[in-house]
Amino acid sequence: MDVQAPSKYVTLISSDGFEFVVLREAAMVSPIVKGMLDPKSQFAEAKHARCVFQEISSIVLDKIVEYFHYWYRYRNSEDVPDMDIPVEICLELLAAADYLGLDHVNLNSK
């Protein structure tokens, strides 16, 4: 990938091999993903715009990706609907969200 013009989309890969193609701007809500994909860094993830999460299953990563887009869509709106999260994945998602640093309310929406 060209460092000067980072791709618009990035690929997130779950532990069981599912690939999720996400808008780069949306994925930047997580400081961890942002750090991994920082074009200035020399991480392999940044070069290829691919992040592999060995600890996160596809079901959970699917929800995380949904959250990225949920955040991206409603970040500037006044009326934000609740995100639907099934109770079965609550715990795993909670741990994953903590891991990805998604615990700030005041996320920069540049």
């Binding site: 959250y67 409603y74 970040r75 969200a97 903590d98 309310v105 005041n106 929406s109």
Partner: peptide, 8 residues
């Protein structure tokens, strides 16, 4: 700021 809650 945004009204979107954090994922946690």
């Amino acid at each position: 700021s945004t009204r979107v809650p954090s994922l946690v």
